[in-house]
Nucleic acid binder design. Structure first.
Lengths: 181, 181
DNA sequence: TTACATCGTTCGTCGTCCTAACGCAACCGA
DNA sequence: TCGGTTGCGTTAGGACGACGAACGATGTAA
């Protein structure tokens, strides 16, 4: 259809309408809502001096028990490079202990502390309320639909070994190889 | 519930299960799928020497006609700071013209060229096929459901003037003020 | 012993979102 | 006609997340 492109004085008119090509684009909707969600979560967590990964790591420790950093990074789904800082922060706040493993001196064993458990419970509440805030406009069954659909997308793309390398002509393509999550 | 946390030898066992607290979290699902989608889109676009913003800007020019950079940035939803580089890239490739506006010498009028239109058509195909790839596991009605739900979330949070500033105690909160998009 | 894999850590890249400031030009009210 | 405000394009930069590369120290298997 190509909505008329050669209208003259469209330079001004302050029309700030999103192009129709973009308005319904799933990838775009996904990206935008994710940005909103991230901001919401980060802000709410910052109010209790926490970050997203704090929750993931504490939850992982609580549910699956003590772990080496390598294992922990696989379980929580963040890069081992980035885990270091998170563990530092959690240790500074007294939420986890990081002690060298006697059995394998390469490893650190990370353990959640009593304070860590208390913080985790606090975060549970914050996270739950943030989900509620995020999904406010949706009814309960709609929320289930959404998480169901997203879960299926995620599952699908996790088995697919990521982006089968299209035509790799122009650029070295960057970003190949499946993620950890 | 608290799934047993004090199981002994959980340090190894290579169990890479995502904690149950995280598995169904909408904000997390959203973030992860968005990352996947972004990567998919970026990779596919890179194959035709394009980036996400290229598409947004070309689409905006095509649908709403020539515009100053300021207006364009509002329409396409990217920051004027970042627009500069995008326009440079598009101009380098001959997809847009950037000419000073005689009527208002502060402005540049950005116009899509014939080549730009051709590229846009190319990108249309790429983008469409990427959506298909992204939503592969979903049926047509399910896809509609998903975009519908996401749209509603987005609409809701767009009117809400963004994050009503919770308690602002620990940190200066960073990131206040509503976004452009 | 030699070769290789793993672990923790540091550093650096890239893209996105967003702020701040600059010089310039246009506009508006006095 | 002037002076202030506002808008424009541009540059520089910070914060943050996903991700890669490499290194020394350690474990493990040939």
């Amino acid at each position: 259809m190509e909505t008329s492109a050669d209208m003259p004085e469209a330079v001004d008119s302050a029309g700030e309408v999103t192009p129709s090509r973009l308005r319904g684009l799933p990838s775009r909707l996904l990206g935008h809502t994710a940005v909103y969600a991230d901001r919401l979560v980060s802000d709410r967590l910052a109010a209790v001096d926490a970050r997203r990964w704090h929750y993931a790591v504490l939850a992982s420790l609580q549910e699956a028990g003590p772990a080496s950093q390598a294992l922990l990074s696989r379980r929580a789904g963040l890069y081992h490079s980035d885990l270091v800082g998170v563990i530092n922060e959690l240790a500074d706040r007294g939420y986890v202990d990081r002690t060298p493993d006697a059995a394998d001196r390469r490893r650190n064993v990370v353990t959640i502390t009593a304070q860590g458990r208390r913080q985790l419970r606090r975060l549970d509440k914050v996270v739950a309320s943030v989900q509620d805030e995020l999904l406010a406009p949706l009814t309960a069954p709609e929320r289930d639909q959404l998480t169901g659909l997203l879960t299926r997308l995620l599952d699908h793309h996790s088995g697919a070994v990521t982006v089968p390398a299209v035509g790799g002509k122009h650029k070295p393509s960057k970003r190949a190889g499946g993620p950890t999550a």
